[in-house]
Design a protein around this nucleic acid. Structure first.
Length: 508
RNA sequence: GGUGGCGUAGCCAAGUGGCCUAAGGCGACGGAUUGCAAAUCCGUUAUUUCGUCGGUUCAAAUCCGACCGCCACCUCCA
């Protein structure tokens, strides 16, 4: 089996092999923690989870690292000397307003003016959401997911290497800039070579901000600013790091290599972020590559439109799970499946209907597992990757993560006859290592009808189910139908089973 | 204006030169089942058609060119 991935760096599909056989070092650009991450962010993070789980299924150890950007970068980093407002201060303002209107639980951020508290709050929310969606890396917080603010020394080390290697200079304004002209490969990833950047700038580059730089595309590595809300000592004066340096520095530190195997992120990060990362890492190490493979996930659309706050179609994970889209609670496995089921290199269209479709697929997978577990008495056979179904599943994913092809193997298989339940469960376990929806490992099993609360809606639904059985026994059809409608209105599916009427919570 | 990507049925989407008279799922329709439903099972569901127009080839959804549309980046953004 050969694994082929589309490599953004070479603009073509290539055979993937890690530098060290059996071990893949992968870095993913993580979230900024000035606000809740939205489902578009999570699609991109989920995409890296998919890569990881697939590589693990095919026998690789995956060392996966991700950053959390908690340095208060400027809202207007475009000017590269750090103009505009600090994002942490913007967040502080917003949190104060949200607190007044009750949007943020009181006490969650005791002091919004403390950027570390703001970052901590949104970091926790991110980790929580990531766990719900079953991201493997969510269980590795603080070992593989790391904060930029705790890696300032690594960044300063890289900056000094860059200055030493003549890739960086201290401008007349005291700011440390990267000299893009010193790096011949600048533009290789994005196609935005220096010539083209000049052509394409369309007069938007403001001369006044360029005076201190040798080339307009030079970007900031360190900004001395003793008045900044977050600042650290450095040989260039107390201040804060540029936006791009954290990933270069942290990837090298955490993955313990100067060249890594895979680097992932959203498509918007290709330029300038990843272009600058390559320039920094290669400039500091002198190596021809930073990452061998660059993989980027496309943006998602919502109901055919761009997701934007002004259109009111802007969703966070908690929005979707809480029912903002469907009007009822959505199980995390359903959102995971929905975000996973379209190919990472096409714009996925997130829709309410799609969510409900995904709920069906997830339910089928979950019920299949339950049926087979019953049949096998809990026994799960050890199935190898050479099992025909597993092999086809892997074959599909080997082709640049062809998830549709992979699902086209799995879903029809569910409807086939399964003589050996233990074997079927073994196959499912393999498949579920990647899909992770049946069950979703970090969220536990799908909760079907076990609500500990006395007098809660679940016990009411159970009572109604019993009443339906009684009504049906006495052929009192109108009463039975009435009760069924009530249960459905409460967000439950009503079914007949050998044990009588049962209700299950709708997954979306 | 520059750069990168995408465009297959009602929807999601596979297929990258012949086995495509185009996987699979959802939906829809018909049937079995049911008190009626739901769930389940069976069947049907693009019939020179794959954004458009040309070209290469014995042969194209698949290669090449032009055009159109959509997305992203060129300013913070997954």
């Amino acid at each position: 089996m050969t694994i082929r991935f589309y490599n953004s760096l070479t603009h073509q599909e290539e055979t993937f092999t890690p530098q060290e056989p059996g071990v893949v070092r992968m870095y993913s650009c993580g979230p900024t923690v000035y606000d809740y991450a939205h489902i578009g962010n999570f699609r991109s993070f989920l995409f890296s989870d998919l890569i990881r789980r697939f590589l693990e299924l095919t026998g690789h150890e995956v060392i996966h690292a991700m950053n959390i950007t908690d340095v208060g970068h400027m809202t207007d980093d475009s000017q590269a000397d750090g103009g505009g407002e600090d994002k942490m201060q913007v967040a502080a303002k917003r949190i104060k307003e949200d607190k007044k209107s009750g949007k943020v639980p009181v006490g969650s951020v005791e002091n919004p003016d403390d950027p570390f508290q703001v970052a901590k709050f949104y970091t926790n929310a991110f980790i929580e959401d990531s766990k719900k969606l079953g991201f493997k890396i969510a269980g590795e917080y603080e070992t593989r997911i790391m904060h930029a603010t705790t890696h300032i020394p690594e960044m300063l080390e890289m900056i000094s290497q860059l200055i030493e290697n003549k890739h960086a200079y201290v401008g007349p304004d005291g700011v440390v800039y990267y000299s893009v002209e010193s790096f011949a490969d600048y533009g290789k990833l994005s196609g935005n070579t220096l010539d083209q950047l000049r052509e394409g700038s369309g007069g938007r580059v403001q001369e006044e901000h360029q005076a201190n730089k040798r080339h307009p595309a030079d970007f900031m590595l360190w900004k001395p600013d003793s008045s900044h809300i977050m600042k650290w000592d450095s040989p260039y004066g107390a201040g804060y790091p540029g936006w791009h340096i954290e990933c270069s520095a942290m990837a090298r530190k955490k993955l313990e290599r100067e060249i890594i195997d895979i680097h992932t992120g959203g498509e918007d990060l290709i330029f300038p972020h990843h272009e600058c990362e390559i320039a920094q890492s290669c400039g500091a190490t002198g190596k021809p590559y930073f990452a061998r493979f660059w993989m980027h996930a496309r943006f998602l659309m919502v109901e055919g439109e761009k997701m934007s706050k002004s259109k009111g179609n802007f969703y966070t994970v908690r929005d979707v799970l809480g029912g903002k889209v469907t009007g009822r609670e959505v199980h995390p496995a359903v959102l995971r499946f929905e975000l996973l089921k379209s190919h990472y290199r096409s714009n996925m269209n997130f829709t309410e209907k799609g969510l409900k479709d995904s709920a069906n697929s997830v339910r089928r997978l979950v019920e299949f597992r339950q049926q087979q577990l019953q049949k096998s008495g809990g026994e799960v056979a050890n199935v190898g990757n050479d099992h025909p179904i597993v092999a086809q599943f892997i074959e599909a994913l080997s082709n640049d993560l062809n998830i549709s092809g992979a699902l086209a193997v799995v879903l029809p298989w569910l409807s086939q006859e399964h003589k050996d339940a233990a074997e079927a469960l073994g196959v499912l376990a393999k498949i579920n290592h990647v899909l992770n929806v049946a069950p979703l490992d970090t969220a536990g099993d799908l909760a079907f009808g076990d609500d500990p609360e006395e007098g809660g809606i679940e016990s009411q639904v159970k009572t109604w189910c019993k009443e339906i059985d009684e009504a049906r026994a006495s052929k009192n059809w109108p009463i039975a139908d009435e009760l069924r409608k009530k249960i459905q209105a409460a967000g439950y599916e009503v079914r007949n089973s050998p044990e009588g009427t049962v209700a299950q919570k709708q997954l979306a």
